[in-house]
Nucleic acid binder design. Structure first.
Lengths: 220, 220
DNA sequence: AATCATTTTTAGATTAGCTTAAAAATTTAT
DNA sequence: ATAAATTTTTAAGCTAATCTAAAAATGATT
C-alpha cells in the first residue's frame, strides 16, 4: 500500500497530538497542528480510515491503529537519527536541523535507516534530548524533571528541551546550557518564579520561569 | 519560485537527453525517459516554459535555459554526493544506491550539500566513476576510453561505467572489476569482438563485446 | 428543554500531474 | 508532390490535496 508524504505527515501529527493531550486527536487539533483547514482534515481522515491507518468516530476524534502507529514511530525514528547525523557528522547546530530532518524522514529504503543507526553508533537520544525509538518502535525512558521542579541545592544534568523553538535553542547556546551541562539550583525567587543557577560549577545565572519550565534535567 | 519534485525530475531528464543526443530533447524522448505519456510532457513543457526554465519551439524540442541548467546540474551534484555518502560511509554497494540518491537529491537546504561535500572530502567522482559537478556546475573532465577501444597490450585502470544497470554492476563485482582495477588487453578476438584481459596483473578473463563497450578505462 | 456557541462535515471549486483518444502538424517515402 | 507514417498537441476527464462558505451536529448555558 502506497502512503504519500502528506499522509505520513498527518499520521505524525495525530501521534504527536494524542501523546501530548492523552486523548484522541480532534479534527481541529489536527488542522491547527498541520496549518490546514478543518475541511481538509475531514477529507484526509476518510482516506486514512480507508487504509486502516486510523480509527475514527465522528465528533469523537482520531486514534492511530497499530499500523498507523508503526508508521508514525518509524518516521520519528528516521527524523531523530537524521538529526543526529546532521549535528554529529555535518556539524549543524541543534537549531538548524529540524526542517532538513523533516524532509529526510520521508526517504524510503529498506536498509538505509538501520545502516544510518549503526553508522551513528546506535544513539538513544537526538540532539535535543528526545528519545530515538528502536526498530521495533520502543522509546527509551529516562527519569527527567523540569528545572522548575528542582528544589534549592538540588543538582542535575541538562538532558533535553520541551520547547524546540529556534529562539529557545539559540538562547541556550548563548548561555552555554547545552545537553550534558551540570546545573545546581542556588536560589529560588518566589516573586517571579525565576532561579539563580550554578552552571557547569562555574558561572551563576538567573533563569526565568519560562526557561526553567522548558528545560529537562536528570537529577543526581 | 517554487519548483516541484516532479518539475525537477523533468529538468534532469531534459539535461540527460540533450547531453546524450547532442540536440534539443523531443517530447517523445522526454516521455520515454520519464516513463510517462507524451501528453503529460506537453503539459509540463508549458509549465516549465512559463517559469523560464526551458526554451521551447513547437516540434523542435526543448533546451534548458541558464536557470534550468543550473537546477539540473545542482541535482546531479546532490545525487552523486549522496551516492558517495551511501557507499563510503554507509557501505552500500554501488548497485544499491541509485534509487535512494534519486530521493535524496530533492532535499532542499542552503548549507546541506556543501557540508556533505566537505564531510566526504570533496570527491570529484561518484561510485560509478561519474564526475561530480562543483558548486558552480563545472564537471571535472578525465581522459577515458571504452575498453573496446584499447589495442593489444595496452594497459589502463577501470574508471567508470557507461551502463549503470544493476545487472552490469553486479557482474563487475563478481569479476572484481571495480573502479581502480588495473587491466591489460592480452588478446582481441575478431570473431565476436571479445577480449582476453589481464585483471589486476593476476587473473585472465575473456570479456564479451558488450562488457568491453560499457567499461571506461583511463589509459596509462 | 430551548438557545447559543463551537466543532465538524458537506458542497462546490481549484490546482498539479496524470491518463486515453482523437486531431493536427511535421517528416519520410513513394 | 502527394500519401503514409510519425510526432506532437488538444480535448476531456481522473485523483490527491487543497480551499471557502454554508449546513449540520454536538456541547454548553440558562
Amino acid at each position: 500500500m502506497e502512503i504519500s508524504h502528506t499522509e505520513e505527515n498527518y499520521l505524525k501529527a495525530i501521534f504527536k497530538i494524542s501523546e501530548r493531550d492523552g486523548k484522541p486527536a480532534s479534527t481541529n487539533a489536527i488542522s491547527s497542528e498541520m496549518s490546514t483547514s478543518a475541511a481538509s482534515v475531514t477529507d484526509m481522515i476518510k482516506r486514512l480510515s480507508d487504509k486502516t491507518l486510523i480509527h475514527y468516530e465522528r465528533y469523537r476524534g482520531v486514534t492511530l491503529t497499530g499500523q498507523g502507529a508503526q508508521i508514525a514511530t518509524h518516521l520519528i525514528r528516521k527524523h531523530r537519527l537524521w538529526e543526529v547525523f546532521l549535528v554529529d557528522k555535518l556539524h549543524f547546530s541543534w537549531d538548524e536541523v529540524h526542517e532538513i530532518a523533516e524532509q529526510l524522514e520521508h526517504i524510503k529504503s529498506q536498509g538505509l535507516v538501520e545502516r544510518l543507526d549503526e553508522y551513528l553508533g546506535f544513539p538513544k537520544f537526538d540532539p535535543h534530548g528526545d528519545p530515538i525509538p528502536d526498530a521495533d518502535g520502543n522509546f527509551a525512558i529516562r527519569k527527567q524533571v523540569l528545572l522548575s521542579e528542582l528544589k534549592h541545592s538540588e543538582r542535575g544534568l541538562v538532558v533535553g528541551v520541551q520547547d524546540h523553538s529556534t529562539a529557545f535553542l539559540q538562547y541556550l547556546d548563548r548561555m552555554a546550557l547545552v545537553l550534558g551541562t551540570p546545573v545546581e539550583v542556588l536560589e529560588y525567587f518566589e516573586y517571579d518564579e525565576s532561579m539563580r543557577v550554578l552552571i557547569s560549577g562555574e558561572r551563576e545565572q538567573v533563569l526565568s520561569k519560562k526557561v526553567c519550565q522548558n528545560l529537562f534535567i536528570q537529577k543526581r
